[in-house]
């Protein structure tokens, strides 16, 4: 196999890694939009809070002298999901529920305000410097020749693929099989009708925010361990990219968010790899414009039919 092939494979793996995490964050945007038709711009900050929660859990456990990898990972995921979900739930209660039913623009402004608030809250509480995260999972595989270009796949990248895949499977099962999932789908189709039929729509909306935040927490834990650095500003760019992924795949559609995330991640990697990393964002946002021009609802978006 030629060097060209290995290079292509490497860029695809890079793209899928980053795309998986875009997808995890994009779910939060797409589910909220699917149900209440609102764009939760504070979602990027929720992801950032997930990263900080993971850092505190890991630092705390390290101080207690616990160094079992499995225990650390389970604790980081579990506690970060709990803390971040609590934030997701509170954000909805404080910033969006009182404004529901009014003009659509008002919750949007409230969301932007929430985003600024959370970013500065973490900045003031934790300082604005980059915090280095301990890397728990190191090492990886090398594929291909040792003396020429070879493909590297770190264990952490595999963990990212696997955890993303598990999260998506669990979410799909929840939405399609459980009673609550059915209620979510009903709300997505017609929230007023669902309310009339005795579904507690407030609860469904809260659950939606909690699920979105939980997946953002998963992304936060994974990415903070993968890149090893967190700061209060990392939610902005990640949120923007995830939002793009959600729109690209068709906002409101969960498979669309996953597809959008992967397309965006791979496009970025291929552009940076074959053209120039300077044009990475130009090409990915250009692609977004192009897709929306021909498919205004995104790749998998079907307006007014089924949004969740």
């Amino acid at each position: 196999m030629s060097e060209q092939f290995y290079y292509f494979l490497q860029q695809i793996l890079n793209g899928v890694t980053i795309g998986s995490t875009y997808a995890l964050i994009a779910i939060g945007y797409t589910m909220v939009y699917g149900i209440i038709g609102m764009i939760n711009f504070a979602h990027g900050e929720v992801y950032m809070i997930g990263s900080y929660a993971a850092f505190f859990v890991l630092a705390g456990l390290a101080m207690l002298g616990i160094d079992s990898l499995a225990l650390l990972l389970i604790a980081a995921f579990a506690l970060s999901i709990m803390i971040t979900s609590a934030y997701g739930w509170s954000i909805e209660r404080v910033a969006y529920r009182p404004l529901r039913g009014g003009n659509r623009l008002i919750p949007l402004i409230s969301a932007i305000g929430m985003s600024i608030f959370l970013q500065n809250f973490v900045r003031l509480a934790q300082g604005s410097r980059d915090i280095a995260m301990p890397s728990l999972i190191t090492g990886g595989w090398t594929i291909g020749p040792a003396d020429a270009f070879n493909v590297t796949l770190s264990y952490m990248q595999v963990v990212i693929f696997v955890v993303t895949f598990i999260s998506m499977t669990v979410l799909t099962a929840f939405i399609s099989k459980s009673k609550m999932g059915r209620a979510c789908r009903a709300c997505a189709e017609d929230i007023g009708m669902a309310n009339l039929l005795g579904i507690n729509t407030n609860k469904v909306i809260s659950i939606t925010f909690v699920i979105g935040a939980a997946l953002a927490a998963v992304a936060g834990v994974l990415l903070s361990m993968y890149y090893g650095v967190i700061n209060p500003y990392l939610g902005f760019m990640a949120g923007l990219k995830a939002f793009t992924a959600a729109v690209l795949g068709g906002i409101g559609s969960i498979p669309g968010a996953v597809l959008g995330g992967l397309i965006l991640g791979i496009t970025e990697a291929i552009t940076a790899g074959y053209f120039s990393s300077e044009y990475k964002d130009v090409v990915s946002f250009g692609l977004l414009c192009f897709v929306l021009l021909f498919m205004p609802t995104g790749i998998l978006g079907k307006p007014e039919v089924e949004k969740v």
Partner: peptide, 12 residues
Amino acid sequence: EGITAGDKDFSA
């Protein structure tokens, strides 16, 4: 080449 300040992923 230029990269974007604030980016986290330079794998490509």
